[in-house]
Every structure is written in C-alpha cells, then in structure tokens.
Nucleic acid binder design. Sequence first.
DNA 1: TTTCAACTCATACTTTAGGATGATTTTGGT
DNA 2: ACCAAAATCATCCTAAAGTATGAGTTGAAA
Lengths: 148, 148
Amino acid sequence: MYKKIILYGVVLGLLIIGLKFAEYRFLIRSNSFEIYGGLIAILFTVVGIWGGSKYIKGKEVTVIKEVMVNAPAEFAVNENNLKHFNISKREHDVLILMAQGLSNQEVADKLFVSLNTIKTHSSKLFEKLNVQRRTQAVQEAKKLGLVP
Amino acid sequence: MYKKIILYGVVLGLLIIGLKFAEYRFLIRSNSFEIYGGLIAILFTVVGIWGGSKYIKGKEVTVIKEVMVNAPAEFAVNENNLKHFNISKREHDVLILMAQGLSNQEVADKLFVSLNTIKTHSSKLFEKLNVQRRTQAVQEAKKLGLVP
DNA sequence: TTTCAACTCATACTTTAGGATGATTTTGGT
DNA sequence: ACCAAAATCATCCTAAAGTATGAGTTGAAA
C-alpha cells in the first residue's frame, strides 16, 4: 500500500518535471495553461479510472446453498426466505395465488388491480427467485416454504 | 444517457469558467500553473474514479447464501390414478417434465419430438385432468400422486 | 423535507401456451 | 394380417405470459 502511494508520488513528480521541461523546449508559452490543463485533465481522468477501477467491486454473484429441512405438517410462511429473496408483501400475495394455479388475469381480479400490475409483480418475482416461468416459480416457492 | 453527457459537458464548462474567473481574481499569477495543475489533477482523478466506476465492472464477488428448503418426500407413482384418468405413458412423461417447470419446447427437446407433439400431449392432458392451464395440471398431478 | 422503496398502471412488443383439426405412422393385441 | 389406440407432426389461429421501459403515487424512514 505504501509502495503504491510512493510510486504514485514519484510518477507525479516525474510528470511535472517532464511538463516543465517540455514547457521550455517545445510548447508555445502563451497557450501553455490551456494545453497543460487539458492534458492534465485527460491524463488524470484516465489515472482516476485506472486507479479507481481496482477498488471497485463488480456485480455480486450470489450462490444459493440449499439446506434441507423437513417440511412441517401444517404450513407456515418461511419469513426468513421471504427476506432472503427480498420479496415484498404484494409480491408474496401474487405468488400465493399463482401457486394456486390462477392465471394473471384471475390474480388481478382477486387483488383488484390491473393485469399489467400483476405482470410487473410476477416479472420481479421471477427475477428474485431466479426462474423463467411461473411453473418454476411455484416449484421454487413451495420448496422455500413461501406458499403452502 | 444523453442527459448525462450533456450534464458532464455543462459541468466541465462551468468549471473552466470558474477557474478562469479565479485566475484573474484570487491567485498569484506566477504560481498559477502549479496550483491549477495540481487542482486539475486532483479534480480529474476524482472525476475519473467517479465516472469510471459507473462503467467499469470489477471482478465478480461471490457471495454464498444459505437458504432453508423443504426436503422432498419420497415418491411413488400412483398407477391407479394413471388408469383412472386414462393417461398414456407418453403423456405421463410429458406431465413429469412439465411438473419440473420445463417449457413445451424444453420438453420436446428432452423427449426428442417436435413442439407440436408436446402441444398435442399437453392439450390432452389438460382435458383428462380437467384443467385449463399447466400450473393447474401440475397442481392436480401432484395431488394425485402422478408426479413427485 | 427529502429520499427511497413499494406499488400501481400503461404502452408496445416478443414469446409461449393452448385450441381445433386433420393426417400419417407405430405398435400391441386378437 | 388387421384394428384400434397411441404417437407423431403440421397448420392456423387466439389467448396468455413475459420483457422492457417509463412514469405517477404514496407511505415511511432518514
């Protein structure tokens, strides 16, 4: 870590020396500020991107590790899993009805909202449960104890 | 996207105006190059980090998450119900894959037949099980012990 | 008060599912 | 060998489902 800081400083110093040297040799003095300013801006934008990119963490890849438990005789929603998968109350409502085999339209009617709303909810559910289809969502939901 | 680019440009423009303004008001001209150079360097390092972080993805970070799932009970096909509902062997194959959340196309691929064939099978299944949708069919099939 | 997530709904579009119908080919049993 | 059921596939069409995007509302937390 210290090495990097020192290296950084040294590089900057050399750079300034280089610029100063160039100033007296190659460039028209009257325009130097604009030119140097621009160069420095570009240079340090790149430096920033380069330096910053090392400390930026990428997308988190969540690996779900399943732990088998015995399903209880009577059903109780697994609140933990609801939280784990960040499923909202309304999404859960939709999930329950979906698991009963209802179509989106039927779910919409039961919940007194529009078909579009249900589509939105179910799309988000599929994302959160990491599935593509409602049949898979229902499967997953049952396994996770989110629905009876 | 365009908004961001425009915003970026506007901010840079204002910045340059600000620096020029400051140049004639507050700072000693003789030292201006070093001061401005340093300021610009710092500023654009930050800009680089900030701007770059939005478009540069870091190494993926793997997060392991444990979730509790219901252990599947051991399963045996209820042959009686298969006969009762007059479900053929092939239809049963389709039903099983359907219950695993596969799409018709995926079922077709697994069974090495065409999509149309699967559609025919599933249509007949829905008739025989007296349901309208595949989600209902899966529900019913599980209840009847036709699939795990 | 600002901010933010959840909820709602819309439009426009693509993809699957499902229904109706008819045709050909296997295949198991008499 | 023959028949009936099962299995295969096609075409045409409609209905649901699903994706993507934007946007207005609201309630609760900072």
